[in-house]
Amino acid sequence: MTMTQEPAALIGKDLSDDLAAASLALARKFHAGATLWVVSPQWEPHAHHVAVEFVHPVIMGKRALPSVALVDPDPVAQARVATRPGDVIIAVASAADPRVVDLMRRAPAWGAQTIWIGFGARPAAGSADHVLWVESDDPMVPATGRFVLMYHLLWELTHVCFEHPGLLTMADDGGRDCTDEVCVTCSDEGRLGEVVMAPESEVSPALVRTATGEEAVDVTLVGPVEPGDLLLVHAGAALTRLDDVTGAAS
């Protein structure tokens, strides 16, 4: 073990900028009434730690904020029913965790912002509103306190933002990078929707959940749909179906 070296920086410049942006966005969402949902399918204790951090602050006088760890075997199903428009979902998970990949791509249809904490290979650009990533491939990272530091800082900075009320009410357009011509968050081409109920007949609409609630959507352009299918919705009609595996437009 090397004992004499200067400790390496745990939070670099880019990550500190990401933390700052995520904290302000989270504070704004809390200010507007959000609940913070936390998932960590691989490392469940981290989900509980994030939740208790916000619910029961270690510093006297700080606000208790609504945050709940979702630790059911199926985090997507649990988050789907828990989440209301305006909420925030934090995942502490590797970029390869298929449950979290699925959760993150569906969140915009539920009207939820997303923060993704992890290490190793980064998630694809645009996978979450805020990506807080430990730049290390060491598989032991989740047990060394790096994630604990990350969400401690997120909590500390979020509470700093509460001391700036003038900055809490501004609109927040999220942080997803637009890499595709069809950007689901920017809504140029359509809004993301998740099928709740398939059409009762070939001529009837499907019931679709979007960031603004449930609506009837004409799905004749995209063909038969099943509950859970992701669609791009524009002017009451589904324009295209999103591929189930990659999230890319089909």
Binding site: A9, L10, I11, S16, A20, L24, L149, L153, M170
Partner: peptide, 23 residues
């Protein structure tokens, strides 16, 4: 207060400082 830029700079700087203390 309406311009978040200086707050964001402070937050980022604070994050790095706390991380250094932790390290």
């Amino acid at each position: 207060e309406h311009d978040p830029d200086s707050l964001l700079l402070d937050l980022a700087s604070s994050a790095r400082g706390k991380a250094e203390v932790s390290a």
